[in-house]
């Protein structure tokens, strides 16, 4: 249960960051048709309650044969609108000469992103890694819907199953709950600055 949580958290953070950064670079570095159209969609997604899409998404995941799998938990959040938005804001301020210099050196468009852009994005990665990690670690409703077999449960759902109308296991629930806060607390105390940067990222540009 605990290993599942860690595994899912790591996978989700790495996947989301890579893909979102990739997309954000596309928005920040190029001029192309429909660019504004797609960017408005990014903003729109940020204001649609996920809970509203939950049911049809659940039906769809079942139709795709993905129910009770980690893919179902991860896929809908991989290209995360909030993260794309943050990276794009960060990259818009980057000097365009870096890209030009890369092109002169004969790097491909993708080579430029992986070799030149990713390294300068490091500080913003930290903030987003922590924000996404926190959300994934504490995610409750969606995994509760799609995961069925108890050996696949994540920590929050696992803890939740200890309390049922048929009998409670408060002994384990209390100590397990207290203990589940510790790792993220340690992370927070070490990387306070990045936590706060990540959380407040959306508000800065209003």
């Amino acid at each position: 249960m605990v290993f599942n949580s860690v595994f899912l958290t790591v996978l989700q953070v790495v996947g989301t960051l890579l893909i979102s950064a990739f997309v954000a670079y596309g928005f920040a570095a190029y001029e192309f048709r429909f660019k504004n159209f797609f960017f408005v969609i990014v903003l729109l997604i940020m204001s649609v309650p996920f809970e509203m899409l939950m049911l049809p998404l659940y039906v769809q995941i079942n139709d795709m044969g993905l129910s009770d799998s980690y893919a179902a938990v991860l896929l809908p959040f991989l290209a995360n609108a909030m993260t794309i938005f943050f990276f794009r804001q960060y990259l818009v301020g980057m000097p365009k000469e870096i890209i030009e210099a890369g092109r002169i050196d004969g790097a491909t468009e993708y080579g430029i992103f992986f070799k030149l852009i990713m390294p300068i994005m490091k500080p913003s990665f930290a903030a987003m890694a922590i924000l996404n990690g926190m959300n994934s670690w504490n995610n409750f409703l969606w995994p509760l819907l799609v995961l069925r077999s108890s050996d696949k449960y994540t920590l929050p759902i696992g803890l939740n199953t200890l309390v049922t109308p048929y009998g409670n296991n408060y002994d384990l629930l209390i100590v397990g709950s207290f203990f589940s806060v510790l790792p993220i607390l340690v992370l927070f105390l070490c990387f306070q600055k990045y936590f706060i940067e990540g959380m407040t990222a959306g508000a800065v540009k209003g």
Partner: peptide
């Protein structure tokens, strides 16, 4: 009882 916690 719950050895998972060590892995974690």
């Amino acid at each position: 009882d719950s050895g998972d916690y060590f892995t974690w």
